[in-house]
Design a protein around this nucleic acid. Structure first.
Lengths: 344, 344
DNA sequence: TTGTGTCGTGTGAACGTTAACAAATCCGCC
DNA sequence: GGCGGATTTGTTAACGTTCACACGACACAA
C-alpha cells in the first residue's frame, strides 16, 4: 500500500510497470493461466500486493460478457421459508464466486414478475433463480426461457424448466399417514392459497394418502399461510371436533398451525387429547408451541445449494435436452401435538 | 424486435444508425439530457423499441465509475427482524434505481465481516449498508470508513458513523412503564446476547425505567434470541413467580417470549393472571400466541427506507461533517398477555 | 544443423459506453 | 441582413480489461 499516488486506484498497467512485465502477463496471473513462469508470477503478485491492486470487474465484464452475477426473484422474503432458501442460495453462490442480485416482490403476478425479470435482465445477470411458488409466477418465468439460464425453485412440474423443489407430495403423505397410523379415522386439511404450487402439492399428497387408505375425505379448509387464517380455520375445526367429526388435522404450514392452536385453545379443545395437529416447515418456534408441534421439516438450505449447483452447471454446459427436476426429501418431526384418538 | 440479426445484441451504434443520428445522441436520449429535439428523441426511442436495445451497464460503469449497486452486509437473514429490514432496503433501493448485492453471514466477528466488506468492495459498490447489530461488527465496519459511503443499521452510537436505528431505549421504556402502570411492583427482564447492541439498548432502557420509578431491579436473565433460550429463562422465571417474586417480565424479543410462554404453561403458571409478559418485535405470530402477546412493534421497513435515503444522500453530496443518527420510534401493541397483578 | 513444437511473453485491437470539445443550426433582435 | 447566444448534433478519445495473434527462446528429434 505504498506508492501513494492517491490520484486514482491502480490499474493493470501500474502493476505491470512495477513487476516489469506487460499488462497481459498480469492478466494471466490473475486468471491463473498455466503458462507463466513461477518467478514472474511471484513478482506480479508482489506488485499487486504492494499497490493494493483490485481488478475492475466492469471492464472485465465488458469484454467477457459475463457479469458473475446471478439474479434471484423471490416472494415475501419475510416468511421463514423464502428467507431460509435465500440464505442458502446466497451462501452457495458466494462459495462459487458469484454475486447475487435480489428482487423481492410483495405481490406476485405476471406483471410484477415480468418487471422483476426485466430489471435483472438489465443487469445482464449470467443466470436466474426464480422462487416461483405460484402458478402465475411460474408462467411468467417460463415465458422468459431461452434468453438466459433459469432455475425455478418450488416451481410446477411442467413448463420444461429445470426445477429444484422439496417433495411436497411426500411431505403431505408423511404427515397424513402418521395421523392415520395413530388410529385416526380420517384427517382434515387446512390448505394454503389455491394458486400456490406448494399448497397444491400438499393438498394432493394429503388427498392421495386418504384415498389410498380408503377413508373418507373431509372438505378442504382454505387458508392463506397467515396465523390469522389458521385461527379462522381453527374455529371451523373446533365445531367439527365438538361434533366428533374431526380428531386430526394436517395444516399446510406452521404459521397457520399456530393460529389454529390458538383457536382450539380458546374453544376449550385440547391438543392432542381431543385433536391431533401436524404442521409443515418446522419453523424454529414449532418446538416451543403449546403443545410442541409435530411438523414436516424442509431443508431450505439444501434447496438453495442444489439450485445454485444446477444453475451454474447450466451456465457452464448450456441447456439440457430435457429439463431436470431435482427433488429434496422432507422429514417428519414428531412432537407432542399428535397422539392416538381418544377411545369413545 | 424485428431486424433479426440475431448474431449479437444491439448496441448504441445500431440504434444510432437506424435513427439516423450519432451514438452520442442516443446516449443523450438515454440519459435524459435536456438538449435533444423532441423529434430526434422520438426517432431514437422508436429505434430502441424496434431493436429491443438495452444499454450495457458494464460499459457504462467502466466509464462513469459508478456501478449503481449498493452492498448490504447482514446477519442471519432468517430472523424476522433482519429479513424485514432487508426487504425494506431492497424495495427502497430498487425504487431509487439501485441494485442490491447482499452478503449474509452466519457467524459474525471481525474476520467474517471484514471478508464480507472485501467481497463487496471487489464489486465496487457505490455505497454500503451494514446491518451491524453486534459490537464486533460495528467495529469492523467503522474500520472501513472513508473508502466508500457507509450507513450502519442498528449500529452503536459512537464510531462517528451515520446510523439508522429503532429507538431501543424508548421501546424498552414503553414496555417497562406499561407493566409498572398496571401496578406491578417491579419488572423482570430476559435479555438478548450481551454483545448485541439492540439487546444492550433494551436492557439499558429497562433498567433506567425501573430506576426512574425507584423500584427494585431484579437480576437480568440472559438469552440468545432463540425460543429455546426463552424456554429456559421461563423455567427460571417460573420459580421466581411461584415464590411470589416475579409478576411481570419484559422479554427482549418475541421468539424468546414464545419459549417463555411455553415454559410457564408447563409449570402451571397462568399468563397474564399470575405473570404478565411483554415481548419485542411484533412478529406476525405474536397476535395468535396463547395468550396473544403484548409487544413493542418496530417498523423495519421504515428503517430500510430511511437507511437507503441517507446512504444515497451521502453518495450524492459526500460525507457530512458530523455523523447523522436517524431514529425510528417504536410503538407498544397491547394484547392479552399483560394485566394488573393479582391482589394477594 | 535444421526443422518442429511447446512455453513464456508482448503487442495491438476490441468490448460499448460517456466526457470533452467542436461544429452546425436556429432564434430573436437591432 | 447580420450578429450574439443558445440549442442541437457530431467527432474523437478515453475507461481497464481480455482476446487473438505474433514473436523469441528453448528442447528435442531427425
Amino acid at each position: 500500500m505504498t506508492h501513494g499516488a492517491v490520484g486514482r486506484s491502480p490499474v493493470m498497467a501500474d502493476v505491470a510497470r512495477i513487476a516489469g512485465v506487460s499488462h497481459q502477463t498480469v492478466s494471466r496471473v490473475l486468471n491463473h493461466h498455466p503458462n507463466v513462469k513461477p518467478a514472474t508470477r511471484d513478482r506480479v503478485l508482489a506488485a499487486i500486493e504492494e499497490l493494493g491492486y483490485r481488478r475492475n470487474l466492469s471492464a472485465r465484464a465488458l469484454v467477457t460478457r459475463r457479469t458473475n452475477t446471478l439474479g434471484v426473484v423471490a416472494f415475501d422474503t419475510t416468511l421463514y421459508g423464502p428467507a431460509s432458501t435465500l440464505f442458502g442460495l446466497e451462501q452457495a453462490a458466494r462459495d462459487a464466486g458469484y454475486f447475487i442480485s435480489i428482487v423481492s416482490l410483495k405481490t406476485i403476478n405476471r406483471k410484477t414478475v415480468g418487471e422483476a425479470l426485466d430489471y435483472l435482465a438489465a443487469q445482464a445477470v449470467d443466470g436466474l433463480i426464480a422462487i416461483a411458488p405460484q402458478v402465475e409466477a411460474a408462467i411468467a418465468v417460463s415465458a422468459l426461457q431461452g434468453n438466459v439460464p433459469v432455475v425455478a425453485v418450488e416451481g410446477g412440474e411442467a413448463d420444461g424448466m429445470p426445477v429444484v423443489a422439496v417433495d411436497q407430495l411426500r411431505g403431505a403423505e408423511l404427515a397424513t399417514r402418521h395421523l392415520l397410523h395413530l388410529g385416526h379415522r380420517t384427517v382434515w386439511h387446512v390448505a394454503g392459497p389455491v394458486d400456490w404450487l406448494e399448497a397444491e402439492g400438499r393438498r394432493r399428497g394429503w388427498r392421495a394418502t386418504l384415498e389410498a387408505a380408503a377413508v373418507e375425505v373431509p372438505p378442504v379448509v382454505e387458508g392463506d399461510w397467515s396465523p390469522r387464517a389458521g385461527y379462522e380455520a381453527g374455529r371451523r375445526i373446533a365445531d367439527e371436533a365438538r361434533a366428533g367429526r374431526a380428531t386430526a388435522v394436517f395444516v399446510s404450514n406452521d404459521q397457520m398451525a399456530l393460529g389454529l392452536l390458538r383457536a382450539l385453545h380458546e374453544a376449550g379443545i385440547r391438543v392432542p387429547q381431543d385433536v391431533s395437529i401436524v404442521g409443515f416447515d418446522d419453523i424454529p418456534e414449532a418446538e416451543f408451541l403449546t403443545p410442541p408441534l409435530t411438523t414436516v421439516r424442509q431443508d431450505f438450505a439444501e434447496v438453495g445449494r442444489k439450485s445454485i449447483a444446477l444453475l451454474l452447471d447450466l451456465i457452464e454446459t448450456g441447456p439440457r435436452p430435457e429439463a431436470e427436476r431435482i427433488v429434496v426429501p422432507p422429514t417428519l418431526v414428531t412432537r407432542a401435538s399428535t397422539t392416538a384418538p381418544a377411545t369413545t
